[in-house]
Design a protein around this nucleic acid. Sequence first.
DNA 1: AAATATGATTAGTA
DNA 2: TACTAATCATATTT
Length: 261
Amino acid sequence: VLSIRGVQDEDPPDPQIMRLDNMLLAEGVSGPEKGGGSAAAAAAAAAAGGSPGSDGSIEHSDYRAKLAQIRQIYHSELEKYEQACSEFTNHVMNLLREQSRTRPISPKEIERMVAIIHRKFSSIQMQLKQSTCEAVMILRSRFLDARRKRRNFNKQATEVLNEYFYSHLSNPYPSEEAKEELAKKCAITVSQVSNWFGNKRIRYKKNIGKFQEEANLYAVKTAVDAASVSAQASQANSPATPNSGTVFPYLKPQRAINNML
DNA sequence: AAATATGATTAGTA
DNA sequence: TACTAATCATATTT
């Protein structure tokens, strides 16, 4: 019955279990009861990177439900293990007590037994924690990874961004303030603005031809506004090449040279 | 359904 | 640290 002989505990690393605990806590799995699940909500909001505007809470409800499910399973399993552990300990103690009638059993031996049992069960617990962590990670990547929830910006947001881009084509690097203003105008975050410009720059550069039409369109758009200022524009500029000359107009010189190679 | 567009993420750089 | 380039994963177009 007591086949607990081969207990070669493969190292139960403390840092490992600490890591798992921390993560479970951070995800709101092992935290306080469902008092709004503020921890989980915060984690969700943080992971979502903050996408204001249209969507926001509908998809999170799904996530939260699943997280609550995981949480419940985790807790019930944990409780089950704890109960089983104490039950088993009791059982072993009883057996030892019985045996003590026929042979002397030192308290040290009992202590050792209990320690072994506890170690065994805590390693099982760790497995539970690990698999729970895994489940949470999968859930997160499934629901919260922003890439999976990509939404195009609305028409007027891209309008605003493009307008800025093409009217600053020679140096499409908005300052921090400019970014903030654009973000406000487009109802997106500053980092989204940065992303957009990063993508736009590289993609424009990569295939300028593809963007000619767009460039013309916005050039005309802004030209209307600028018309009042530049009243002496009477030279015959060829409409096919609104941005004649430089291939990488906005690159800083040294970088442009590097990129030629 | 395949091709293309697009926002976000990542590694690497100066 | 802000940027580029490559890449991912989804959205949209064809």
